[in-house]
């Protein structure tokens, strides 16, 4: 221990402190700070690059997923469209058919009604004519009664018989 204290040189101690503290300050400014900053920056860069790569991967996955979803949706929509179109087509055909049928029936009914009314009208006409004919006949009978009663009666009978046939 005594030898150790004897070995201790104050000058060397002072120089050591001066040199070492100077070295710390110099290296701090010119080496350690820039080195640690550069290394930190690089590590941050790597971290960010990895993170962004991960993000890009996720984005890619999302994109693929959404693409597939879109495709599936489009396909489904196409199918529904086609289905709807088919339904509409069938409906249209059916509608057309039923309408045509209804129209036909209506026309037939109208035609029937027209025929009926025509027939009635014709019957009325006929009756009118028959009545006018009857009147004429009656007139003629009346006239001929004045000349030939027997013949007139015969005529009347005959005419009535004819009228009854109608």
């Amino acid at each position: 221990m005594e030898k150790l204290i004897e070995q201790f040189s104050l000058g060397l101690f002072v120089w050591m402190l001066v040199i070492f503290i100077g070295l710390i300050l110099l290296l701090k400014k010119f080496a350690w700070k820039p080195i640690l900053d550069a290394v930190n920056e690089r590590e941050e860069g790597i971290k960010n690059a990895l993170a962004s790569a991960e993000r890009a991967k996720l984005d890619m996955q999302n994109l693929t997923a959404s693409n597939e979803r879109l495709l599936a949706e489009a396909r489904a929509e196409r199918d529904t469209l086609l289905k709807e179109a088919r339904e509409i087509k069938e409906k249209m055909i059916n509608d057309a058919k039923s309408e045509a049928q209804a129209q036909g029936e209506k026309m037939i009914a109208q035609a029937k009604a027209a025929i009926e009314s025509e027939k009635n009208a014709a019957m009325v006409e006929l009756k009118n004519q028959v009545s006018s004919l009857s009147i004429e006949i009656a007139e003629k009978v009346l006239k001929s009664e004045l000349s030939n009663t027997e013949a007139q009666t015969k005529l009347v009978e005959k005419m009535l018989g004819d009228a009854k046939l109608n």
Partner: peptide, 12 residues
């Protein structure tokens, strides 16, 4: 040390 480490610092 000064030249070694300031050189390293500059090389970044």
């Amino acid at each position: 040390m000064f030249f070694l480490f300031s050189g390293l610092a500059k090389s970044y």
